[in-house]
């Protein structure tokens, strides 16, 4: 903990070196998390070499979060490989981290794992998709449980780089579902968008659509 308080790159190097020497599992997780808190890229090699392929899934998941925080070179590539991990918790952490890293190269693998029911991929995809990929993602609405897709939809509606046309189409698509949970989502969406300014028409469309869905 003193090393964390020091917070210098040297501290990260020292912790990384101790990590390589082997520690009890509980300490490994703490050390990895500490490296994440320090957030120095110098910890990257140890995290990628020791943390990401570690035998224990808790360590691997912690290492993914730490790598995301440290952002060393090759971080996205290393985390992308963990989408194939045998442990669901590690795959989920990887999917979330790839969204956080804004790694557009991960879009295709994230779609693949979403098809294999790794639902944490949906919000990450929502932060990464562009162009036709947006329609590919929204096509999952109705195919996957709505509570899986709603965080992804929230992300899509919040993104400023997505056109108003796309968002209006998405509102129309949601209205067609016409379920109670969609109605609540659209009401919350309308409430979250300011009445004036960008997306005002989306707000109005969401409000109108919610009203058209019968309770």
């Amino acid at each position: 903990m003193e090393l964390v308080q020091v917070g210098t790159p040297d501290a990260a190097v020292l912790i990384a070196e101790r990590l390589r020497q082997g520690l009890p599992r509980a300490l490994v997780v703490h050390f990895v998390e500490t490296l994440g808190v320090l957030g120095h890229a110098s910890a990257g090699p140890a995290l990628i070499e020791v943390g990401l392929p570690h035998r224990h899934p808790d360590v691997r998941a912690a290492a993914i979060r730490a790598v995301q925080a440290c952002r060393p070179p090759g971080a996205a590539l290393a985390i992308r490989a963990r989408l194939s991990d045998p442990a669901p918790s590690v795959r989920a952490a990887a999917a979330v981290a790839l969204g956080g890293l804004h790694d557009h190269d991960s879009v295709e693998p994230l779609f693949l794992v979403l098809d294999r029911h790794l639902y944490e991929a949906a919000p990450s995809l929502a932060s990464l998709v562009q162009g036709d990929e947006i329609r590919r993602l929204t096509a999952y609405v109705g195919r996957l449980p709505f509570d899986v897709m709603s965080p992804a939809l929230t992300e899509l509606f919040a993104r400023e780089d997505i056109s108003e046309r796309n968002k209006l189409d998405l509102v129309a698509q949601l209205q067609e579902l016409g379920t109670a949970e969609v109605k609540v989502f659209l009401e919350d969406l309308a409430d979250s968008i300011p009445a004036q300014g960008r997306d005002a028409r989306v707000r109005q469309a969401a409000s109108d659509a919610a009203m058209r869905i019968v309770d």
């Binding site: 020497q21 009890p24 570690h54 035998r55 224990h56």
Partner: peptide, 16 residues
């Protein structure tokens, strides 16, 4: 050698 050092404090299972 690397394997030995990394897991020497974590031999939780017979296999390991």
């Amino acid at each position: 050698l690397r394997f030995l050092r990394l897991y020497h404090a974590d031999a939780a299972t017979n296999g390991l």
